[in-house]
Write a protein that binds this DNA or RNA. Structure first.
Lengths: 197, 197
DNA sequence: TCTGAAAGCGGAGTCTGGTTCCGGATGGTA
DNA sequence: TACCATCCGGAACCAGACTCCGCTTTCAGA
């Protein structure tokens, strides 16, 4: 888990190469943001991130236009991690519904570990995000899974893949709101609710 | 639906009777809050509520210590309305699971109608609220329903009533995040997920 | 009815935290 | 080495929740 954060994904076309010090700072900021937002979520202030990264607030804002954008960028990595873990385990799984469970469990685990990630899932999953990022990829994966599951008959036909996405946002809220509970139960409820009977 | 808001429920023991003008202002504030938070949720500012109520901000804060408290107080009424509607219809329903569906549908409807109510459900349902209010009563109702449903065998035994509460918070998020979608599907998914198979 | 003081009021001012701005420093190229 | 576009730091700005206090109103009791 190197902190490369190369100019892929979220970043638009880097028409002009960034100066070396700017790139160095961007990575520092992102690392600080990952650590702090991951631990304490939205309560962390921008000044603190800047201090931890060893830069001024201005530098934060040059790279990320708003706090929300920084939180999102810090969480982006989790989406790739989830996708990787999911792909590695998918072959061992019986059908699309179990694959979906696997995906939700990975999402849930990331949520208990990373509070910034929780915020992103809870507030922005599925709401017109830019294509190309790991987040959009994961959403596409989930959508495809629901469609395939419906085609093969294990997932109820009367829902839209977007419904599954919305329910995943809901899962996020449930986990965040009541972290002490056995959140695997929430996943069980959702998966059984999506099953054809 | 008069705006009585008598000194029941949330208010602690009113040791000393409130002055008449104070009570009048409290009701005005609550009415303004209901209207504005209901329409536009959290984006409404305290100054605007005060203006609409025809009082100063200081008066708002004398009656409700924080914005959050005012939003919650404004939403409280919805909980009683839901409870009333639910009780009126409950007799016509087959079993505890269908009763639960009824409850969730009422909650969902209130959410599409009242953005302040959504916020309250989403953020604070089940998180150690003070007993005595309509909200706590509704939670108790839901808890009892799950227990009874488990006893009679229609609701899966491996969950805790608090899980149902958490999932209801999740429902709130799903509805708020994607209001355009047919949110009855979310309820279907949850209800089928809670069923014994 | 009158009166004193407790209760309540308004809204300017405080405080917090996100965001902007700009004078000075730096990296990279000619 | 010099030039300048790019970048930097952090003080200043601003929005919006919340506080404070001098003035006003209510309402027992006389």
């Amino acid at each position: 888990m190197s902190t490369t954060s190369s100019s892929q994904g979220i970043d638009a076309a880097p028409l002009r190469r960034r100066r070396a010090d700017a790139e160095r700072n961007r990575v520092r900021v992102l690392d600080a943001a990952r650590e702090l937002f991951g631990q304490r979520g939205d309560e962390v202030q921008m000044d603190e991130v800047a201090r931890r990264a060893g830069v001024g607030v201005g530098t934060l804002y040059r790279h990320y236009p708003t706090k929300e954008a920084l939180v999102a960028a810090a969480a982006e990595q989790r989406f790739s991690e989830i996708q990787a873990a999911y792909r590695a385990a998918r072959a061992d799984v019986a059908d699309e519904l179990e694959a979906l469970r696997l995906l939700l469990v990975h999402v849930g685990e990331a949520q208990t570990r990373d509070r910034g990630f929780s915020i992103v899932v809870e507030t922005t999953l599925g709401s017109g995000d830019p294509p190309g990022g790991a987040r959009a990829e994961l959403e596409a994966e989930l959508t495809a899974l629901v469609r395939q599951g419906q085609a093969s008959g294990v997932i109820r036909p009367d829902i839209d893949p977007a419904d599954a996405l919305a329910v995943t946002c809901g899962l996020a809220t449930a986990i965040v709101r009541r972290p002490a509970r056995e959140w695997h139960h929430y996943v069980d409820i959702i998966i059984d609710g999506l099953r054809t009977h």
